[in-house]
Design a binder for these strands. Structure first.
Length: 288
DNA sequence: GCTATTTGACCGAT
DNA sequence: ATCGGTCAAATAGC
């Protein structure tokens, strides 16, 4: 991942001074960019080669496993997500889920040993006839992202992790077999922008300092609770100790999904590369 | 007055 | 009948 980010950085630098680039130095820059992504790809292939020898799932009930699903192990180095956050200027919406692709990623941070599970999926076929209804059963093919995130250990530890979106709580339920209640949130801008994003937050039975956060639906409002400034990004910390100096936690699920999009190119739709290619038609730039 | 949270009621799925 | 997700009235906070 760090190599990929380094590649992004090189591209950005090239983009910023492209007009005055001499052909010789342009060639050098392109070589460097190409080599960086080549190296990243090599490492990725190695990782894919060992994926089956690792125990990827720690959930007794995998939410989204189907034929064609991808699995891989990633090592997220401290600061990478922060860099991505500052680079992208906010969480991208969890789009690209129209794709038939179902994937599961698991990021294992090196320091704290905390596992992080990201699941994305959609049923695709056969969902046309059903219309969204309240009380609809889970796992009916609706897009869903599961994420584990550290809870606050100081201050109000009941606060759900801050993900830079504004949420409005609309329910809380005691869940059978769970020690802690599940809280239900919808996007604050649901009415104003018809934003369908929702999330559920629940503490783990065996680890009260970890929240399981389930995201459903993508943000269409693109409004963030905090401005994606460098100073805001500077307050984020690595996953292994996701408590900021201001006492906020940060979760990275949508960003991870988008990074995965960048890495795997799952759908070509909704892959957010606009922070590199500020164009309306990023798919064209993908090919370039 | 406005917005957010709480919480019992309600409803669809099983 | 039970469970989980949502509604909506009551309440809290500004």
């Amino acid at each position: 991942m760090s190599m990929i980010f380094h590649g992004f950085k090189l591209v950005k630098e090239l983009e910023s001074n492209l007009p005055e680039k001499r052909p010789e130095s342009l060639s050098v820059s392109l070589d460097e960019i190409a080599k960086t992504f080549d190296d990243a790809n090599e490492r990725l292939k190695i990782a894919l080669g060992i994926k089956n020898s690792e125990t990827v799932l720690n959930q007794s009930k995998p939410v989204m496993i189907a034929s064609g699903s991808d699995q891989m192990l990633m090592h997220i180095e401290p600061g990478l997500m922060q860099e991505y956050w500052s680079r992208c200027g906010g969480f991208p919406s969890a789009q690209g889920t129209e794709a038939m692709v179902q994937r599961q990623l698991m990021a294992v941070d090196g320091g704290g040993g905390r596992n992080l599970t990201v699941v994305e999926g959609s049923s695709g076929a056969g969902s046309g006839s059903s219309t969204p209804k309240k009380g609809r059963r889970k796992d009916e093919g609706e897009e869903k992202t599961v994420f584990l995130v550290a809870a606050l250990r100081t201050g109000n530890t009941d606060l759900p992790p801050d993900d830079n979106h504004t949420w409005r709580k609309y329910g809380q339920k005691e869940i059978l077999g769970s020690r802690f209640p599940r809280a239900y949130y919808r996007c604050t801008h649901q009415k104003l922008y018809n934003c369908p994003a929702k999330k559920q937050v629940q503490r783990l039975n065996d680890d009260p300092f970890t929240f399981r956060v389930i995201y459903r639906g993508s943000h269409t409002c693109h409004i963030y609770s905090t401005a994606p400034t460098a100073s805001a990004a500077a307050q984020t910390v690595p996953i292994s100790s996701a408590v900021t100096t201001t006492g906020h936690t940060v979760d990275y699920a949508p960003a991870l999904l988008d990074m995965a999009d960048a890495m795997f190119g799952s759908s070509g739709i909704g892959s957010n590369m606009d922070f590199i290619f500020p164009s309306n038609d990023s798919s064209q730039h993908h090919h370039q």
